[in-house]
Amino acid sequence: MKTLDEFRSAYRLPLPELILRAAEVHRTHRNYADVQRCALLSIKTGGCPEDCSYCSQSAHYDTPVGRAPLMTVDEVRDRAEQARAAGATRFCMGAAWRAPKDGPEFDRVLEMVRTVRGLGMEACVTLGMLTADQARRLSEAGLTAYNHNLDTSREFYPQIVTTRTYDDRLDTLRAVAAAGISVCSGGIIGMGETEDDRLRMLVELAALATPPESVPINCLMPSKGTPLEMAPAVDSIELVRLIAVARIAFPRARVRLSAGRDRMSRELQILCFLAGADSVFFGEKLLTAPNPDETADAELFRAMGLPASVPAHCS
């Protein structure tokens, strides 16, 4: 699928047919039992100069989230070891920057990447906008993937962010891909966008020269003090439909069921897996937002009859 009409056609299928099609694609191209567990750590929190309307770390808003400086490499190593022991195979690190500056802090992030890779885990970072040289240096450090979400459609984007442009986002994705790093990019639903806005975001991702390795689908977590703090909850069936369409459009990618799981029933999460999601973040927080704890996730996977850890042959 490449065009908006093609995405609409799939999205509007009767739900059982849409889920069955997505499941067939999933079974054909991936191991359905391979649901990757990822851990996400905020390595530098708060004070971001961007004005993203959904973000509690923006310096533009008065939110309960305080500021914390960049963590040390030893702190990150400890947290990565804990995540690995709990079953994570990918360790993701996020810093509240508009763009990292070259210098000691960026060098420290490079060492964090080398440390995580040295533990035998995939390493992903999200640091804001990158230059081509920074992407190259991250690649040389062994970075597995770079997360840089498009958030929403090009048309709706200016209503959510004004401190950077949509093309700024795409330029970073191109720099990451050119450096040989896998692209992780998706969006957030529940910000007041239309269903077409969500599909247009997927159209943008499908148009990339290098398809994304993973597509995170986040449900807005309304944060006190942000412009979207009173946003209504996302419709469950709309979430399932979007995941199914993402699975069909990106058959070899991870479709990551990301933020918002703490508000989802066990049954809704299972429906999302049936529709093609094959990755979750676990741990008590996603950067600054709440998330199901490891015990709840272990019970969820046992209920689905899936292994407690990812099989060694899965990729």
Rank of each mutant, 00 (worst) to 15 (best):
M1L: 15
E6N: 08
L15P: 02
L15M: 08
L18K: 01
R21K: 14
V25D: 03
R27H: 14
D34H: 14
D34C: 15
A39E: 03
A39I: 07
G47L: 13
C48L: 10
C52I: 07
C55M: 02
S58T: 07
S58V: 06
L70Y: 07
V73G: 01
E81W: 05
G87A: 13
T89P: 08
R90M: 09
R90H: 13
A99E: 11
K101M: 14
E105W: 00
F106E: 09
A123Y: 06
V125S: 03
A132L: 10
Q134I: 06
A141L: 00
L143S: 01
L143F: 05
N147P: 02
H148I: 06
T152G: 04
R154A: 07
V161H: 05
T162Y: 05
Y166W: 10
R169L: 01
D171K: 15
V176T: 06
A178N: 11
A178Y: 09
G186F: 04
G190Q: 14
M191D: 12
E195V: 13
L199C: 08
T210S: 02
I217M: 00
N218K: 03
P227R: 12
L239V: 12
I243H: 04
V245M: 00
A249G: 08
I270H: 15
D297I: 04
A298L: 13
E299F: 14
G305H: 13
L306P: 00
L306G: 01
V310Y: 14
